[in-house]
């Protein structure tokens, strides 16, 4: 990106996309209400896109802005730590896996989906002081994988159709 203004506008637009996707996701009926935290991870489509088209910097910035906005609108201090932990772990692992160059967009996205749930569980164990929450881990691992596959394919489509677009 050429200059600061362009960069700011760009990050703003993509943050808005990510926030809209969070909102859309919150409107969808829960897939399986017995287990908290099962989500499609739609905003991760934007994060994957930024990670591949630009760099970890853009992906992390937008991820953080989205998280902060969503928590300010719908959450509290607890959900902030919970979401932050998921987002940081997910983005770090996706970034590292992408760097190895051994996995496709879908593989990277799957690792992101699983780590997002894992990070949230780890935060919940510390915040609530109960290790029994680990009980949710198997089902959240599988749901993270399924969500990651979906998000990965969406990411591929998005990357493909914007390949010629100059930002």
């Amino acid at each position: 990106m050429k200059n600061t203004t362009q960069r700011l506008a760009f990050l703003g637009v993509f943050s808005a996309f990510a926030i809209i996707l969070s909102f859309v996701e919150s409107l969808l009926p829960p897939i399986w209400s017995a287990v908290p935290g099962i989500k499609m991870g739609l905003p991760n489509i934007i994060i994957i896109f930024l990670l591949y088209r630009f760099s970890i910097k853009e992906a992390a910035t937008v991820s953080f802005i989205r998280l902060l906005t969503v928590v300010l609108l719908f959450g509290n201090a607890m959900t902030f730590l919970y979401s932050l932990s998921g987002a940081v772990l997910s983005l770090t692992v996706m970034w590292l896996l992408k760097k190895t160059n051994h996995f496709s967009v879908v593989g990277v996205s799957i690792s992101g989906g699983v780590c997002h749930n894992l990070g949230q569980i780890i935060a919940a164990v510390f915040l609530l002081g109960t290790k029994e929450i680990g009980f949710y881990m198997p089902v959240l691992t599988v749901s993270g994988t399924v969500a990651g596959i979906f998000v990965g394919f969406c990411g591929i489509i998005l990357l493909k159709y914007t390949a010629e677009f100059k930002f």
Binding site: H102, F103, S104, V106, G107, V114, M137, T145
Partner: peptide, 16 residues
């Protein structure tokens, strides 16, 4: 890469 993806998914599912 596709093979690695499948391997990654397999490992995750086995752990789950």
């Amino acid at each position: 890469r596709f093979k690695n993806d499948i391997m990654l998914v397999s490992i995750i599912l086995v752990v789950a």
